[in-house]
Each structure stands twice: as C-alpha cells, then as structure tokens.
Amino acid sequence: MNPFLRFLSELQDITLMIWSVLVGLTKSPRYFKEMFQQMDLIGVGSIPIILLTGFFTGGVLTLQSYPTLAYYGGQSETGMLVTSTLIRELGPVLTALMVAGRIGSAISAELGSMVVSQQIDAMRALGTDPIRKLVTPRIIALLLMAPLLTVTADIFGIMGGAIAGNQIYGHDYNVFINSMRNGIEIEHIIGGMIKPIAFGFIIGVISCHKGLGTTGGTVGVGRSTTNAVVLSSIVVIIADFFLSRVIQTVLVTRY
C-alpha cells in the first residue's frame, strides 16, 4: 500500500473509532468507574511533572526576557510577558507534550499489549465492546484533565517567573503581579482553555488508535508506543498553530 492510501485508511479507522465513541456515549453501559480511574491516573498522576515543567518554564522565561526588556527600559512589563506567553502558548502546548509523553505512551502500550496477548479478543468474546470499556473512558478523562493540568502549569509557571525575577534580578513581586494583571484578558484565558481540550482529544484518539492497531507481538507494542507519542506530539504542535489563528480571529483580542 502506498503511503497516501495508508494515510487515508488510518484516517478512516480513526474516524470510525471516534464515531463509535460518540455512539457509545448515547446508550448504556457506561463505564464511570474506569473513567474515574483514568482521571486519577492522568490528572493526579501527572501533577508532579506538570508542576516542575510549569515552574521552570516560567522561570526561564523571566531569566531570558528580563535583560532584553531592561535594555529597552521595559523590565516592569516582565510579568505581563511571562503570563501571556504561558497562558496563551506554553502552558497548553508544554502540558500537552508532557501528557503525550506520559499518558499517550502508557495508553498505547497498555492497549497494545492487551491486543498481542489476546485480551482485547477475550473482552469481545465475553461480550464487552473494547471501545466503550477502554477507549471512551480514556478519551473523556483526557478531555477533562488536560485543561486542569494546563491551569496548574500556568499557575506554577507564573510563580516560577516571579520567583526567578525576584531572586536573580531583584524584580519586585508587586511590580510583577501588577503587570501580570494588566496583561491578562478573559479572551486569553478562554483561548488557553480551548486548546488543551483539543489537545487532550488528539492525544487520546491517536494513542488509543495506535494501541488497538498493534500488530507483530512485543516489538509491535514498542513500535506503536513510539508512533503514538511522536504522532500526537506533532499533531498537537501543528494543531496549535491553526487553533491559535482561529482563536485570534474569533475571540478578538487587543494584543
């Protein structure tokens, strides 16, 4: 099969999977227990890495931008720069990349090894639809947890930025907070919440699809895990560009 046809057939499989997830939502059985388990695993489980990622990203933003701003005499605007960069771009994207690495790989490895050890077949043989039991709870958990994790990353990033500015450049906390308040608009926050929902969906769909499509034994599990992480990261970054443009046009922001 040539690459273009392969791409089309994968796209078809993904679309069909999304469709069965949507259809499955309309009728019972619904697996709430699995959903809460996944929310715990994805949400609570990711807090440490998200916290560290956010904190040091905020810190490095201040570290790098403060001298430049100071050169133009605009160091008092550091808070605004750090905050709006985090809320609009780095918070959602970095969170999505960390989640893709941590959760996307886990999902595709788990589903992949269930495929090669015939557990998925066993599930179907016992009368359970694996899409409803395994895929839907994971995608929904990601949809709900990705925005919350992004908020965590944003908050700790702002803290990191303020602390780095204060400790390294002696930048006053009050100045930082004041400029931060001026820098945030409600549209930025809304935009920054829409993105992680979309990213969570992308990561969930791609990881589940790659996991369930595993072939070729244990080697295949490794391959689909790698593919899931790489593909969802790339799609997240590409989608980020277009989403940013759409948000910019729809939610008209001042700057």
């Binding site: 269930m114 050890s117 015939q118 557990q119 077949d121 066993a122």
Partner: peptide, 10 residues
Amino acid sequence: MVFQEGALFD
C-alpha cells in the same frame, strides 16, 4: 472461549 495463553486481564 478458552484462549491460547489464557488471555486473562492482567
């Protein structure tokens, strides 16, 4: 159905 390796849910 009894699967080759049992196919138990881990």
